[in-house]
Design a protein around this nucleic acid. Structure first.
Length: 660
RNA sequence: GGCGGCGUAGCUCAGUCGGUAGAGCAGACGGCUCAUAUCCGUUAUGUCGGGGGUUCAAUUCCCUCCGCCGCUACCA
């Protein structure tokens, strides 16, 4: 029996589970069930990433230990997976002993080899993103930098000893590997991104932190903590007992499939293979990269407040509806769009009208015309042969699609066949056959053929529609979900009267669900929510930009006075060549003119600003941008997407006036 | 700015290795009654993003422009 080892990323416990987590995990579950049907012994791994400063901070804020915070979030994830009928085989937590020791083992191994060395890193560190800010981003006057990922100013300048991974030594080997395994990353467009990233040159990667305590300690140097990606990525091997290199490890590694969203591609397709090469371990066979779910065409994010909570959907739908919609509507690689309208439409049309109704009308007739059981001979015609033949074609198409993880296409083909069966009923007109006793065998032939076709299709749908498929098997008294054309015993009976898939009332759906969604987003649900939910909300709050300064952020008036802000008039403005976002401004500050570069070109045209009175920070240390010396900073408000809004003062504001 | 991708019916998308295009949904009309007011049939609409080129012929190839998306650089 061939093995198949597949993984989802481990989810960061600072996040409440959302539709994106659900999608990745459902996709993995569908693949697991499908592979099992195809005769693989599958190991399906998921889990949680629980380390890092962010967790430490969140936990402190709530008076919890990081582990307690993680525990509550883990429960939340596990509950959701259960509700969605996710059958993972193992749930790894980065706080598991076997993981911690396993990470230390890889670390030591790579260090022995000389690919981890002690160095010193001085740089700005974004706690929120757990990333150093690149050197290329220059400092502001107060010695801060803005994190390019989240736009937040960095808290602190970190200068520390830390261990580096010699990533720079792996560029050529990685490129060679990609060349020899062009299918390593799917879809191909993502593979291209990886290749071009590596071709630009790789820098060594710092893999430990002395400033972070909540994590895996470096063996032999407990001052240092192994940090994010080295820790997190290792879960794929520590979970299967890399520590002892036990049977599970030798059986299942290398992984057959890592599944993830596009935002963590680089780590999985560049860092992870390099780590493994350094540790002398085989590389995973394939990485499947999917897009993000958009809600009503907009990116889902906490800052824009449109997080899609799977729990709300699950209150109104059975899990199959969600599983089906997500598999049917997204093509791997592209972003999927989640709209309530699209969801209800897809579910009601396909699942209720087409599939459930096909089963319902078939069982209805068997009940009505044969009192639920067959024990008489049946007559078949060429038409029934055709139905069987077309199922063969369908199955081949569907399995081909599934093998390439194109579930949307496979499902499309399956539903085409379901429609064909609905048409067959109209053509055969069983209700007319039923009118004459002489037609009984023919009628039996039609209904038996329908039963066989339904059971055959049901097996194809089973990996996706788990509960529904089980219901169909119960109705027709047919256990087993093997692929292929299903046979029937000479004599058999069915168990009708079960509603396969309830139709969703769109009125209820359109009023109740958006309300709950909105309530959730407004945080109104928090008071009666469980501890984990509050933990999640608190964690969110801790990392959104504060609107009211908390005690730690209060400054003295003296601090404020250090910043000299004055009114300036824009004399000239032009776009900086070879830079999308930069405008070069020549301004009059009352006591002379100076040049200033501002990253607002996406939203402001030069002519929007010429002649206008704006506010600038006058005593900012000059910085070179694209070769132009910028002597000061224009003041602009910035929204969650970093879109700038430049305050324009009244025309009669005197140039050089001081803001205080 | 560099690299890559995309732009096809109201919506979501398929397709054309060059001979003016389709599937589902939504819409209109009709039919059936076994079925969860379900199902079946018929049906509309498109300068296939704009412009230019190659060709007997382009939506399909080439160039260019516009718009959108991804990676990347830039955001004092």
């Amino acid at each position: 029996m061939p093995k198949f080892y597949l993984t989802t990323p481990i989810y960061y416990v600072n996040d409440v589970p959302h539709i994106g987590h659900a999608y990745t995990t459902i996709l993995a579950d569908v693949i697991k069930r499908y592979k099992q049907q195809r005769g693989y012994r599958v190991l399906f791994l998921t889990g949680t990433d629980e380390h890092g400063q962010k967790i430490e901070k969140s936990a402190n804020k709530q008076g919890l230990t990081p582990k307690q915070l993680a525990d509550s979030m883990v429960e939340r994830f596990k509950q959701l997976w259960q509700t969605l009928n996710i059958e993972y085989d193992h749930f790894i937590r980065t706080t598991d002993e076997v993981h911690i020791k396993g990470v230390q083992k890889i670390f030591s191994k790579v260090k022995e080899k000389g690919d981890i060395y002690l160095g010193e890193y001085a740089g700005h560190y974004c706690i929120s993103c757990e990333n150093f800010i690149p050197e290329s981003i220059e400092e502001t006057a107060d010695g801060k930098r803005t994190c390019p990922d989240c736009g937040r100013p960095t808290d602190n300048r970190v200068k520390e000893k830390c261990y580096f991974f010699r990533l720079s030594a792996y560029g050529d080997r990685l490129l060679k590997f990609y060349e020899e395994n062009p299918e390593f990353v799917t879809p191909r467009s993502r593979m291209n991104e990886v290749v071009s990233f590596v071709k630009m040159g790789l820098r060594d990667l710092s893999v430990t932190r002395s400033t972070v305590k909540w994590g895996v300690p470096v063996p032999g140097d407990p001052q240092q903590t192994i940090y994010v990606w080295f820790d997190a990525l290792s879960n794929y091997i520590t979970a299967i007992d890399y520590l002892n290199e036990g049977k599970r490890f030798t059986t299942y590694w290398p992984a057959d499939l890592h599944i993830m969203a596009k935002d963590i591609l680089k780590y999985h397709a560049v860092y992870w293979p390099a780590f493994l090469m350094a540790a002398g371990l085989p590389l995973p066979k394939k990485e499947l990269i999917h897009g993000w779910w958009l809600k009503d065409e907009k990116k889902i994010s906490k800052s824009s407040g449109n997080v899609l909570d799977p729990h709300i959907l699950l209150k109104h739908f059975n899990p199959d509806a969600i599983r089906y919609f997500l598999m049917r509507e997204a093509s791997i690689g592209a972003d999927g769009n989640f709209s309530h309208e699209g969801f209800i439409n897809r579910v009601n049309t396909d699942l209720t009208n087409d599939w459930a109704n096909l089963v319902s009308r078939t069982t209805g007739m068997i009940e009505k015309y044969f009192a639920n059981s067959f024990n008489q001979p049946a007559v078949y015609t060429y038409k029934e042969e055709e139905i069987r033949g077309r199922f063969g074609t369908l199955e081949k198409t569907a399995l081909d699609c599934f093998d390439q993880y194109q579930f949307n296409r496979g499902l499309e083909a399956i539903f085409e066949y379901i429609n064909y069966l609905n048409r067959y009923i109209v053509e055969a007109q069983p209700w007319n056959l039923a009118k004459e006793e002489a037609n009984q065998p023919r009628l039996a032939g039609v209904l038996k053929t329908l039963t066989r076709a339904i059971l055959s299709v049901n097996a194809l749908l089973a990996p996706i529609l788990t509960d529904t498929a089980a219901k169909v098997r119960t109705i027709f008294n047919a256990p087993g979900q093997d692929l292929g054309w299903h046979d029937l015993p000479e004599v058999f009976s069915i168990l009708p009267g079960m509603q396969l898939f309830p139709r969703v009332d769109s009125k209820v759906f359109f009023t109740e669900v958006p309300q709950e969604d909105a309530a959730q987003q407004a945080g109104a649900a928090a008071p009666q929510g469980d501890a984990a939910q509050q933990a999640g909300a608190a964690a969110d709050a801790a990392f959104s930009l504060p609107t009211i300064p908390d005690a730690a952020n209060v400054i003295e008036i003296e601090d404020f006075k250090k910043v000299q802000m004055v009114v300036a008039r824009v004399l000239e403005a032009e776009k900086v060549e070879k830079a999308d976002k930069l405008l070069k401004l020549k301004i009059d500050t009352g006591d002379g003119t100076r040049t200033l570069v501002a990253g607002i070109a996406l939203f402001y045209k030069p002519e929007d600003l010429v002649g206008r009175k704006i506010i600038i920070v006058k005593n900012l240390k000059p910085a070179k941008l694209r070769g132009i010396l910028s002597e000061g900073m224009i003041l602009a408000a910035s929204d969650a997407n970093n879109r700038p809004y430049v305050p324009i003062l009244p025309d009669d504001t005197p140039v050089g006036a001081i803001l205080k």
